[in-house]
Amino acid sequence: MWNLNQQLPVTLISCLLLIACGGGGGGEGGSSTPSGSGSVSSPSGQTLKITDLVIEHDNDLASIYEVDIDVSLPHLAASQVYISICDNGGGGIENIDYEKCMVKSSLNSGYGQYQLRVPNHCDSLIAVVSVMEPDTPALVYTLNHNNQAETTWLIQ
C-alpha cells in the first residue's frame, strides 16, 4: 500500500530535478549551449565576447521593412489583369514559387495599392503582371531593398 506522505517528497524532488536539468535532450543532432555565457563562436572558430560586437547607431535591429506599392497601369483598364508580388530570391520570373507570393490579386481597371511587411532576408521583390489575353507576355517589375525601413514602389 502506498503512503502518500512518503511518495510526495520523492515525486516533487524528481520533478524539480527534471525542470532544473532542462527536461529532455531534444532528439537527434540537438546540442545545448550555456545560456548565460556571453560569448559566441565566430565562423573562424574564435570565441567572441558579447561586448566585442559592434552595432551601428542607426541599426534598430528590425527584422522587417515596409513597402507601400502603388500600381498604375491605366492602359490595361479594359483587360482582366492579375498581379503577383513575390520574393525575388530565385533570380527571375522562371524561379518564382507562386504559392509563397506575398500578394496575389487582380487589378481594378489597371490600378491597385498594397502595403507589405517584408522580412529583411528578402533583398529583392518581383512583381509579375499577367494580362489575360492571348499572346500577351507578362510584365515584370523588380524592387531591390535599399536598407530603408520604409519604401514606396510605383509600378507604372
Results as ranks from 00 to 15, higher is better:
K104S: 08
S37C: 03
L143C: 06
W153C: 00
S72I: 02
D58F: 07
P9F: 13
V103I: 14
C101I: 02
G22A: 11
I19C: 08
H121V: 09
S32L: 13
L18D: 05
L139A: 07
Q113Y: 02
S31M: 09
G90T: 10
V54Y: 15
I96M: 06
A127Q: 04
G38C: 09
C21I: 08
V10W: 11
A138I: 03
S130R: 15
D97S: 15
S42H: 07
G89F: 06
I55D: 02
I50K: 05
Q80N: 14
N5L: 11
M1W: 06
S84Q: 08
S35N: 10
M102K: 00
D60W: 01
A149M: 06
G90L: 10
V131F: 08
L61M: 10
L8Q: 14
M102S: 04
L139W: 03
A149C: 00
C21T: 12
G90E: 09
Q46D: 11
V103E: 04
Q115I: 03
T33H: 14
I50A: 12
E56N: 12
N147P: 04
I93Y: 03
Y111D: 11
N3K: 07
S105I: 03
S35K: 10
N88D: 15
P74W: 09
I13H: 08
T47M: 14
P74S: 10
T47G: 05
P74E: 07
L48K: 04
S32V: 11
G92C: 11
Q148L: 11
V118R: 07
V71M: 01
D135Q: 15
Y114R: 00
N5E: 13
C15Q: 12
S42E: 04
N144Y: 09
Y111V: 09
V81G: 02
I126F: 05
D123M: 13
G29F: 06
N146R: 14
C21Q: 11
Y141T: 01
S39E: 04
D70K: 15
V118W: 07
H75L: 09
K49D: 04
A127T: 04
N95Y: 13
E66M: 08
D68E: 15
L8F: 14
V40G: 03
A138V: 00
S32C: 09
P74A: 12
D70C: 10
I19G: 00
S39L: 02
S44R: 13
Y65N: 03
E133I: 06
L76I: 10
E56P: 02
T47K: 10
C15H: 11
S31C: 06
A127P: 00
G92Y: 08
G91T: 10
Q6P: 00
Y82A: 15
P43Y: 15
H121L: 12
G90H: 10
V118Y: 08
S106T: 12
P34D: 15
V140T: 12
C86N: 06
W2P: 01
C101E: 02
M102H: 02
